[in-house]
Measured scan of single mutants.
Amino acid sequence: MKTQEELTEIVRDHFSDMGEAATLYVQVYESSLESLVGGVIFEDGRHYTFVYENEDLVYE
């Protein structure tokens, strides 16, 4: 099982292909040891929320 830090790095790496991230945040109260819930805000103003669970990243 991966730590939240490892899950955060996986998510950060995925979003790095989409541009320069200004902020990546984790909603600790919705996350667990198995999943990471949060969002990313890019330098150009785009904002996505995400759920990373079971090696699957879903974002909108």
Rank of each mutant, 00 (worst) to 15 (best):
E20H: 12
G38H: 03
H47S: 04
F42L: 05
V51P: 00
E6G: 04
F50V: 01
D56C: 15
A21I: 15
V11G: 02
D44H: 01
E20S: 12
Q27F: 14
G45S: 03
V26C: 11
R12Q: 05
A21D: 09
I41K: 04
G39Y: 15
G39T: 12
E43Y: 08
E43Q: 11
S35F: 15
I41Y: 09
T3S: 09
Y25K: 02
Y59S: 02
S31I: 12
E6P: 04
Y29D: 04
V58D: 03
M18H: 06
S31V: 10
T49N: 04
T3D: 03
F50D: 01
E30P: 04
Y48I: 07
D56F: 14
E53Q: 12
E60Q: 12
N54W: 11
L57M: 06
K2S: 05
H14R: 11
H47Y: 09
A21N: 13
E6C: 14
A21G: 13
V28Q: 08
M1R: 13
E5Y: 08
S31M: 11
N54A: 07
V51K: 09
E55R: 09
L24K: 01
F15I: 03
Q27N: 12
E9L: 10
V51I: 10
V28S: 11
E20N: 12
V26P: 00
S16G: 07
H47E: 06
V51N: 01
N54I: 10
T49Q: 06
Q4Y: 12
R46D: 03
E5I: 08
T49A: 06
S31F: 11
T23M: 11
E55Y: 10
E43G: 10
E5F: 10
E9K: 14
D56G: 12
A21L: 15
E5N: 07
M1W: 10
M18S: 04
H14F: 15
R46G: 03
Y25E: 05
E20G: 12
E34V: 10
R46I: 05
A21S: 09
T49E: 04
T49D: 03
T3M: 05
E30M: 12
L7F: 03
E20F: 14
L33W: 08
V58F: 10
L24A: 02
E53F: 13
E20T: 13
E43P: 12
E55A: 11
V37H: 07
L36W: 07
L24M: 07
R46F: 09
E5P: 05
V11Q: 02
V26R: 00
M18K: 06
Y52D: 00
D17A: 15
L36Y: 06
K2L: 10
L24G: 02
A21P: 13
E34Q: 14
E55N: 13
V11W: 06
Y29E: 03
G38Y: 07
R46E: 02
E60N: 07
Y52R: 00
E6Q: 10
L36Q: 01
D13N: 14
E5W: 10
R12A: 06
L33A: 10
S32H: 09
E55S: 12
T3C: 14
L57I: 09
M1T: 11
M18Y: 08
L33P: 11
S35D: 01
G19L: 08
Y52M: 05
L36R: 00
Q4E: 07
D17P: 09
F50N: 00
E9W: 07
S35E: 03
Q27A: 10
E5H: 07
I10Q: 04
F50H: 00
R12E: 03
Q27S: 12
Y59K: 01
F42I: 01
R46T: 07
A21V: 15
E20Q: 11
Y59A: 03
E6A: 07
K2W: 07
E6S: 05
